[in-house]
């Protein structure tokens, strides 16, 4: 078939690219809003900043309808099993944005209860720094994620299968082990 016979309103592409294009421009976020960042997430979705301009305004609170999890706020040890369960309930293909310093690294809360970065326990695709990030910054993050999906997404999601490691740092680093040992020694000496 000669290309010149194709009418103007038909264009050719790869199936992978078409699927990624569609997915990138209709993200359905699952706002896992635990703390302050959740309010900025609300601000991003409401009047002044209007997330709808980027096709990501359909916040759904049921994980089964979503494909983008935005972890907004600190996750503590009581909440982490809930987060993991919600992540597992989301259908593929799915992505995760870790919004704010607390979700990325624990932020200012280096305490006994706060998980030092959700990426230790679930895969994270994109980190948005800030405490909390401004709405503009979250939007920049969503645009960057759209870019990531467009350049590397496949129709059947095989790109996820290759990632067999959690994408963040290893769950137990050396510092942590030393800290635990010191704490245990302290405990023994007290008793």
């Amino acid at each position: 078939m000669a290309m010149k016979d194709v009418p103007d309103n038909i264009f050719m592409t790869q199936l992978d690219a078409a699927a990624s294009w569609a997915r990138a421009n209709s993200l359905w976020p699952m706002p896992f809003a635990t703390a302050c960042c959740g309010i900025e997430l609300m601000a991003t979705a409401s009047s002044r900043f209007d997330l709808a301009r980027f096709g990501a305004e359909v916040m759904r609170f049921s994980p089964r309808q979503c494909d983008l999890m935005i972890v907004a706020g600190r996750v503590v040890m009581k909440m982490l099993p809930v987060l993991q369960r919600i992540w597992l309930q989301m259908p593929e293909p799915k992505w995760c944005i870790s919004m704010g310093a607390c979700a990325c690294t624990g932020g200012v809360f280096d305490t006994y209860a706060v998980v030092q970065g959700v990426d230790r326990f679930i895969p994270v695709d994109l980190y948005v720094p800030g405490c909390p990030p401004r709405p503009e910054q979250l939007m920049a993050g969503i645009i960057a994620l759209q870019d990531k999906i467009k350049h590397g997404g496949t129709l059947n999601g095989t790109e996820f299968g290759k990632r067999t490691q959690p994408m963040g740092p290893t769950p137990y680093d050396l510092d942590e082990l030393i800290r635990i040992r010191e704490a245990n020694e302290q405990l023994v000496s007290l008793n």
Partner: peptide, 11 residues
Amino acid sequence: IGYLHSGFEKL
């Protein structure tokens, strides 16, 4: 409750 207990008072 306690799903957001992050140790403010200890800090």
